[in-house]
């Protein structure tokens, strides 16, 4: 049980559950593969036959638009058959257990599950349970991990900054509840980024977060100084009810990314956001739509990165 469950005996990717513990060479290989698919996405016929005949189930126990759609597009461009299941509305409400649902879908000759679930560790559990020929991609589990998002963010950084070894990356916002932040932090430290920072009030940072290899800041001015990359996290409205924050207004005043605060970062800094954005809460529209924003390219690159992951898992 304590063996890394996402690698097979040869060190190749069997599932993609978290970036934690993946070697740097594997991440670089994913990016190189994704680079190849960029060209496919710019062709007239945007399709390659790598996964022809494979059945990929989008198993979403939590609502999602962007992630589910980009996985679907990525799978279709690889010529796979894609089946979308919105489970929150079907069997779980009829009392079927998670593993029963998985068994039933596996019996429909699934080759890959793309899983999103509200509980941390759900994808690990499914990966432990399925037959050896079935691959699991974690599309977000609780607060734990969202590895393809972390990968596409790194791919975007590589596109704009070239190298990782000389960067300062600042992650701003609700790290405590964010699976995206955890995956980004693991990816950044694995890729050798020398300075990874988190900026947030203490109520939005998990205990001992510095042990993940980040420097902790509580104010934007010192935290953003000399940053090459500024990643803004989504802030959910529940945080006001849970006594994490007094109000969205106060949050925006102290931690929302405005043009004034962005000026603390390096002039060529890029601004990223995993979406969906709350304009005027964690990011000002002028920054989100401004020249330093790479938020829409992130989405586009997400397709190539997901194609790379799926083809590496189930291809050839």
């Amino acid at each position: 049980m304590n063996r890394n469950p996402q690698l097979n005996a040869d060190g190749n990717l069997r599932h993609l559950l978290t970036i934690d513990g993946l070697p740097r060479a594997l991440l670089t290989h994913i990016f190189d593969t994704a680079d190849g698919f960029i060209a496919v996405n710019e062709q007239e016929v945007r399709k390659v036959p790598l996964l022809r005949g494979k059945a990929i189930f989008n198993l979403f126990f939590e609502p999602s638009t962007r992630t589910r759609t980009t996985f679907e597009i990525a799978a279709k461009r690889l010529s796979a058959d894609v089946i979308n299941l919105n489970i929150s509305a079907s069997s779980q409400s009829k009392g079927e257990t998670l593993l029963d649902t998985v068994d039933n879908l596996a019996a429909m000759q699934a080759d890959m599950f793309i899983v999103r679930h509200a509980q941390s560790g759900a994808a690990h559990m499914i990966a432990r349970h399925v037959a050896p020929h079935i691959h699991v991609v974690n599309a977000g589990d609780g607060r734990h991990a969202h590895p393809t998002q972390g990968l596409l963010d790194m791919f975007t950084i590589r596109k704009y900054k070239g190298e990782f070894h000389n960067l300062c990356v600042a992650i701003v916002g609700d790290v405590l509840h964010s699976r995206v932040a955890r995956s980004q932090i693991h990816a950044l430290t694995t890729l050798g980024v020398p300075e990874v920072r988190v900026i947030a009030p203490k109520t939005l940072l998990p205990t001992a977060v510095e042990q993940m290899g980040v420097r902790v800041f509580h104010d934007m001015e010192s935290g953003l100084r000399n940053a090459d990359v500024v990643i803004i996290l989504r802030l959910q409205n529940e945080r006001m009810r849970g006594a994490h924050l007094p109000s969205a207004q106060e949050y925006f005043k102290y931690y929302g990314l405005t043009a004034e605060k962005l000026a603390y970062a390096r002039p060529d800094a890029i601004v990223m956001h995993p979406g969906p954005m709350n304009r005027g809460v964690e990011i000002d529209s002028s920054v989100a739509d401004g020249s330093q924003s790479v938020i829409l390219p992130q989405v586009t690159y997400g397709i190539a990165v997901r194609m790379a992951v799926m083809s590496m898992l189930a291809g050839n």
Binding site: S120, D141, G142, R143, A145, P206, T207, A208, V209, M212
Partner: peptide
């Protein structure tokens, strides 16, 4: 437990 393991695994602590 509210410690590094829960932080890394994203488990409510």
């Amino acid at each position: 437990h509210d410690g590094f393991v829960a932080t890394r695994l994203g488990l409510p602590a």
